[in-house]
Nucleic acid binder design. Structure first.
Lengths: 103, 103
DNA sequence: TCATATACGGACAAATTTATCCCTATGTCC
DNA sequence: GGACATAGGGATAAATTTGTCCGTATATGA
């Protein structure tokens, strides 16, 4: 949970599993989240070896993040969670309706 | 993640999947965690319909928590996470050694 | 009467996570 | 020069989660 539990980590892994991406692409993809926050999640994923950072020594700077084999080994779990969430969402919606009532 | 991501939730589901238990049994099982915290997690799991609470109208009070079908549907995911964690733990240990260095 | 057991929860503190604000630096185009 | 793009991070605030302390109530047994 420490490795994949961050608020955006599973989403980032999910995106990178489809192909390597530059930071700016990821920032555009998560438009409702500040770049800073995504960078933090990327850094932790990198420290844990779930993703890899490649720096192309060019100007302007060019960086790419790609998923590693260890990161890819989390994808089946992420998909299971996704499917479970999809199937449970209707019930969850009803639960939230009961709880939040106006408030 | 909101449903099963709590610090003790997957552990509680794991225990209840083995059989219904009384709150005091669970408190004894998680001896390093205060009963209050376990109660909070139980309450949330109950609200989300992952566990069920049965009150026996006796004195002294007798309560039992049991896992529901929805809760049971999370068990395969919890097991996958457990297996992934077991297999990744050696690498994780090395990563933590590098990071924490004395500090 | 006092200690134990059952089960629960309010008020608060501590810790952790997430988010915002603003700054660095370099280069291109108008 | 000014606007934009690239990639990044320090300082700090806000929000959430986790944990502690102490209280409720009832009943049993020493």
């Amino acid at each position: 949970m420490e490795v994949m539990g961050g608020k955006w980590k599973s989403c980032i892994l999910y995106e990178l599993e489809k192909g390597s991406k530059r930071p700016s692409e990821l920032h555009r993809h998560f438009e409702n989240t500040s770049p800073r926050v995504i960078n933090q999640q990327l850094k932790e994923l990198e420290i844990h070896g779930m993703i890899e950072k490649t720096i192309f020594p060019e100007l302007p700077p060019h960086v790419e993040y790609s998923i590693t084999d260890d990161g890819r080994s989390l994808i089946p779990i992420i998909r299971m969670l996704e499917q479970w969430g999809d199937s449970f969402r209707p019930k969850m919606t009803r639960i939230l309706e009961k709880t939040e009532t106006t408030e």
